[in-house]
């Protein structure tokens, strides 16, 4: 589904079953125990979520994939942050049974920051979009947020 190389990968071993861990991605009462202050979830494909991290930073996006006990994929972005708006990046959580627990792998794909800082072309791309935004134009979804390298 996503063939890009993740720009950020985290792995953590958790001493619980994949089933227990999975519930922390689809149950708002459980999700709020590890992320944000207020969590609204619509855990179905295309369903939206809103995670109020600290009253100021709000993560917004939608569920792209939900495979019970195995995998959850979300689009990820920040409300009001033009350089990383909702839908601009993708976060994948992969749950793998391991010994008596679960190995959780997090991959964050398509971070626009990487493109902006990695080359001048990326910089110009985002600054052009910023300018058009500043001029009040509707710039639509970022074509770079979904392209495949």
């Amino acid at each position: 589904m996503n063939h890009n190389t993740p720009i950020l990968t985290k792995r953590i071993f958790i001493e619980c079953s994949p089933k227990t861990l999975f519930s922390f991605f689809v149950d708002p009462d459980k999700m709020v125990r590890w992320i944000g202050q207020h969590v609204l979830l619509e855990p179905k494909i295309g369903g939206k979520y809103r995670i109020d991290i600290n009253g100021e930073n709000i993560a917004l996006g939608e569920y792209k994939e939900i495979t019970p006990y195995e995998k959850v994929v979300l689009t990820w972005g920040w409300e009001g942050l033009e350089i990383m708006p909702p839908g601009s990046s993708t976060v994948e959580f992969v749950l793998t049974p391991h010994d008596s627990g679960t190995l959780l792998t997090l991959n964050h794909f398509d971070l626009p920051i990487e493109k902006m800082t990695s080359n001048d072309q990326g910089w110009t791309h985002y600054m052009t979009r910023l300018q058009r935004l500043a001029e009040g134009q509707n710039i639509g979804p970022d074509p770079w947020a979904t392209d495949k390298k």
Binding site: C16, T20, L21, K30, R33, W34, I35, M84, I113
Partner: peptide, 28 residues
């Protein structure tokens, strides 16, 4: 300055995953 933003996201996931581990193990 924009790389700092990446560092922020990196730290954000580190902190969140530690809390997830604690919460999920308690639940188990």
């Amino acid at each position: 300055g924009f790389k700092d933003l990446k560092a922020f996201i990196d730290q954000f996931w580190d902190d969140s995953l530690i809390r997830l581990k604690e919460a999920a193990e308690e639940e188990e």
